[in-house]
Amino acid sequence: MHPILRLDEVVKTYEQHTAVDHVSFEVPKGKIFGLLGPNGAGKTSLIRIITTITRADSGKVYLDGEELNSSHPMQIGYMPEERGLYKKMKVGELLLYLAQLKGMSYQEALQALRGWFTKFDIKEWWTKRVDELSKGMQQKIQFIATVVHRPKLLILDEPFSGLDPVNTNLIKDEIYQLSQEGTNIIFSTHRMEQVEEICEQIALIHQGKKILEGSVTDIKNTYKDNLFRINYTGELGSPLDSSFRLLEQKAGSLDVQLQPGQSANTLLQHVLGQGVQVQSFNEILPSLNEIFIKTVN
């Protein structure tokens, strides 16, 4: 099976500044993919190439096995970070217009939009003018505009910026649902904690270069330090065996780093042998934020 998106040595230079520097990665089908990187890392430049807004100086992009061409924008839904709507238009007219620009017929667009309006329970907005809606309402409209044509690939650039928690959850649920229905989703953000929550697969971009790629679990396992935290009640009879590296000890809590050759089981057995009640035993995995900082340094 083709990956939904494959980038091969993509380069984009603006005057003296290299925004995208030989980036290659694959976005597997059926997963929520996180495109990560701090501000100015080149995420938006990369997305603009994928959405055919700009063209790469060199390198190739394949959408579902086909090299990117002018028919592809119809199969992509893109919600840019810099987003907006025609403020003076009626909501219904605007959405019909945007849907038709994505290649839908008037009737198709009307039907699909009615579905969304029912789903979000916003039928009475149809004849309102965009600038009569609140910011959060406008974001919902923006989201509908992005997905109404049932794109194969959905690219969301910082989709939660400016959203309140209620609307964030609403859009988040929609993202999950679209993913389950088979939409491939690229989620671009600089907020690493959001990615950990939502994405299964990521690529990490820094200063135009890709520095990490893979599933979130794999990456975390690669970067883990074999740290374990044990919470217990009772008194430790004797200090921990010196073969274990004790990082921190607080009342009822131990942070231990396993040394080569040691397993979690031996640690747990050793602690249990100390005559305490173990309440929890967890591996401490690094956050993506920590991994990012580590790789950049």
Partner: peptide, 15 residues
């Protein structure tokens, strides 16, 4: 207006 409203990037992802 299109630039200020930030709709232009949405538009040129279609046209």
């Amino acid at each position: 207006e299109e630039k200020t409203n930030r709709i232009v990037e949405v538009m040129i992802s279609s046209v």
